[in-house]
């Protein structure tokens, strides 16, 4: 058997891909209207780019105070990585997300 230290070197990819800012791909940008958002997190669930975070929602507007009291989090878009596919806007049950042209 070949001893471990005599095995050939194998390239290993070890840098977390968060360093890659795929937000530059975007031509349309999702914008959440927090007053329409019911915090169902369906947008979070379907995002292929893991670009919707669940953050402390206390500083965001809401449809009602009750929503803010019962659900502490709000969906927040990570524009560094969001590729602008529009899935969140398409799946949102209250049409709270609008896709607006990206200005470059």
């Amino acid at each position: 058997m070949i001893p471990y230290d005599k095995l050939p070197h194998t390239p290993i990819a070890s840098v977390n891909s968060v360093v890659v800012k795929t937000g530059a791909w975007r031509t349309f940008k999702p914008v959440i209207n927090y007053e329409k958002c019911i915090r169902c997190m369906i947008c979070w669930k379907f995002c292929p780019d893991v670009s919707i975070r669940l953050e402390d929602g206390s500083s965001y507007p809401a449809q009602s105070e009750r929503i803010k009291e019962t659900i502490k989090e709000a969906p927040v878009i990570d524009y560094d990585h969001c590729k602008g596919c529009g899935i969140c806007a398409e799946e949102c049950p209250t049409k709270a997300i609008e896709m607006v042209p990206e200005e470059k």
Partner: peptide, 24 residues
């Protein structure tokens, strides 16, 4: 607290090179 219907843990990071809207 928010009630999620699937686990919150993320073991796939953003920054991957899949196309926009890739189902895979």
């Amino acid at each position: 607290m928010v009630k999620l219907t699937i686990p919150e843990i993320e073991l796939m990071s953003p920054g991957h090179t899949g196309c926009q809207g890739c189902g895979a």
